[in-house]
Amino acid sequence: MMRRAIPETLLGSLPVVLVLALWQGLTSAGMAPPSLLPPPAAVFSRLAQQLTDPVFLGHAATTLFRLFAGFTIAVAIGVALGVLATGSRTVGALVGPVVRVLAPVPKIALYPAFILILGFEHASKIALVAADAVFPILLATYQGTSAVEPKLVWSALATGTSRRKALFTIVLPAALPSVLTGCRIGLVISCIVVFLAEMISSTNGLGHLLVYASRSFRTVDMFVPLITISILGLALNAGFNALRARLLAGFPEES
């Protein structure tokens, strides 16, 4: 295993190194003026400098707040509706067609409506994040809960557990792998959407920093927030995977 793993890691780092080398080559050969493509060193040193700047960190904190507020709302609504749609025919019959209509709608198109109703501040961005993240979570929860082996539920009902209690103490835990997969997709979507919302209309946050820099053609400062949000996305994804592994200790490995 180990002997094979090392060359594969090398192989995998090859395209990443190539991209960086191409970037460096283009700038140092003078083929790309720094106003269009700043050299990598300039971007990364600026990034390092910004990460200690309280103003920049304040913008990042604003973005994170909106991200988690929207994501939390999406998890609460998505998981609850997903479980209830499995547990109750009535809820399923109501939720099903509405999801069918709303899921393929590009939620970003609702952003102007959210701005009109909720204003230009946090609320409209949080609403957009929640609207975008809720559907993968809801669908994954519904799929997971409706695919739970009925005999698992029967085993619980036989001991005297009520159907309602079994829905949350047996069906939901049994569907946890699927629910958490949906949440992880929702988390990455939240990360992307909050940034885009801030780019389209905001006075603060990382997305706003990118647009602000582009208006004054400070190219280096356009790269920095973009890289920050991408690293944030990677970190959240990795963190969530670690959490998932802990929570799913008893479940068989997924292929």
């Binding site: 082996e149 005999k151 698992l152 029967w154 085993s155 009902l157 036989a158 001991t159 005297g160 047996i170 835990p173 049994a174 946890l176 799913l248 200790a249 008893g250 479940f251 068989p252």
Partner: peptide, 18 residues
Amino acid sequence: GPGPDRGPVFQEFALFPW
């Protein structure tokens, strides 16, 4: 309906994986 006077044992085991 199901009741604790009748205990099932299934071919699929149906153990709670968590």
